[in-house]
Each structure stands twice: as structure tokens, then as C-alpha cells.
Amino acid sequence: MDFSAIVSDALRSGIGPIAAVYALAAMGLNLHFGYTGLLNFGQVGFMLVGGYGLAITVSTYGGAMWLGVLGGIACAIVLALLLGLPTLRLRADYLAITTIAAGETLRLFYRSSWAEPVTGGVFGLQRFANDFYSLSPIEPGTYGVWLVRFSSRDLWVMIVGWALVLVVGGLLALLIHSPWGRVIRSIREDEVAARSLGKNVYAYKMQSLALGGVIGAVAGMMQAIQVQSVNPDNYDPGVTFFLYTLLVLGGAGRILGPVVGSILFWFVLSFLDSALRQAIDAEHISPDLISTSEVGAVRFALVGVALILLVAFRPQGILGSRKEMLLSGR
């Protein structure tokens, strides 16, 4: 077995563009779930409207890239309003069901033959991010240190992606430590108490849903840009489940929780993936037991196990405090 290849894969994945995208999307989810206590199980829907907002504007209508970005953000706000209006007055469990249903409904609409002229249906849309890559100041080639090398394209996406993580993280930190953030956190603790103190809880929840949704949409755009393609089947509810896993892993209700969570999540996932594949190739694991084509599935199953164990034994994640966790009655 080639350990340096395994480590290389794991490191590349842990700091790569996808980790940045998931960190960003999970930051939005962290605002919902970690700070406001909104059980949003449809974050992938925001990523979808972000990615498609950009792709449709550029590919289908020939618009400019910046217009596409604005379009994606606008779509996320509209989605937040559509989702929030009926459900934010309801109990957390209703919000959970509605958001997961809404995300899936969106995916089904975008992939339907009905929407194909605009969204490309099951084929999706491609090559709408040329403007983004033409902005890259990086000379073509590959770059890297030690075991880790990236193409200039990926490097450019990574730089922008992690820069966005930094900016969004900074903005969220400012918000959370302001009176606005105090109201948001009070809603997580007890929205009845917040209302009794004159806070318009509904409006704040809506703001949180929209803001976290926009962050999710930006993540969706980065994801679409990275592969120069959007396809409805990349936006299944499993994505949201991954986001929850890495959020709980890093620590919900911590600004850096999603960042640490995403890096570690992708590092471990790739490590396992690469190690399993090599073990099968080298016949350390019998191909009858698991074939290489099943490695992906095994990996997801392990994510499931990890999520169960995390919530059971370390619900506060890496960065959270156990003491604080125990105070929450939830």
C-alpha cells in the first residue's frame, strides 16, 4: 500500500475546493441550527438555487457572471421567504420536514423535462464559469508543497473559496457578538421568552433563514464553478446530511465549527476512501466482501455511524463545550 498517496489524497481533500464549499454551506447552516435553533434540513436547496441561479443566468440567458451571482442570491432570498412564511411560526419538527421536502421538490422541478429548456433537465448546464477562471492571476500549471499538488484552476477556486470562508466567518462573528446575535441566540434558547421581551421572533428567524440561505447559495455557486457544471442529482438531501455531520463534528454554535468540521470531515472521508481502495487493490480486503465500486457506499455508511456516535458521545463536537451543551434542554 502506498501511504503517501493516501495521505496526499486526504490532505488534498481536506484543504481542497470541496472542503471550502462545504465549510461555507455549513456556516449558513450553523447560523440556522447552531445559533437560531432552526432545524433546516433543506440547506441543499439553497445551494441548488445558488448554483442554478448562476448557471441559468449565464448559460441559458447569456447574462454576465456578476448578474448570475446576484441572481443566485436573489433566488436564495426568495426561497427563504417561501419556506419561512408557512413554517417559521410552527414547531421545529414541522420546519425540519418542510425544509427537506422543499429541497427535494426543488431538485425534482429542476430536473424535470418540463423545466429542461431552462435548467437543462437531467443533463444540467455546463461551462458557465469561464469568466471566473479568466480572472485568475495564477499561471497555468500545477502548484504544491510536499505531497499536495493542485492544478492552477483548483488553486484559484480554493483561494476564492477559503477567502469567502474567511470573510463570511468574520461577518458572522461580528453579527453573533452584536445585539442582533444576542436576539438570535435567545430565540434558540427560548423563543417565548424572547417574544415576552419585545423581540419580533418571526422577523429574526426569517432574517436568519435568509442570511444562512444566501451563504448556502454562495457555497452552491462555488461548487458549480469548481466543476463548471450544475446537475440536479448533485443536490440530493444527502448533501444536507453531510453538512450536519461536519457541523456536529466541528461544533454547532461555534464560528469555526463548520471550518474545522469540514476540513476534518473531508480529510477522514478521503483517507478512508483511498485506504479502502488500496486495500482492495492489494487484496488486503477480499473483493468479494467489498468491491472498489462499493467503496463510495461504505464510506457513506461510515459517515452515518460517525454521526450517530458523535451525537451520542460528543454532541458538542470538537470546539463546543460539554458544560454548555448540558444546559440546553434540547
Binding site: 435553533g37 432545524l39 455508511a301 452515518g304 454532541p315
Partner: peptide, 23 residues
């Protein structure tokens, strides 16, 4: 374990079972 965390555990269980079936 709180109820909200239990929801998240069911997500983990769903991922686990679904992919075991897939394999």
C-alpha cells in the same frame, strides 16, 4: 440526549442503513 439531537441521529441511521443496503 435531546430530541433535536435524536433527529440528527436518525439521519445518521438513515445514511448507514441505506448504504449498507446499497452494498
Amino acid at each position: 440526549t435531546g430530541l433535536i439531537n435524536m433527529f440528527i441521529v436518525t439521519i445518521g441511521l438513515s445514511l448507514l442503513l441505506r448504504h449498507v443496503v446499497l452494498v
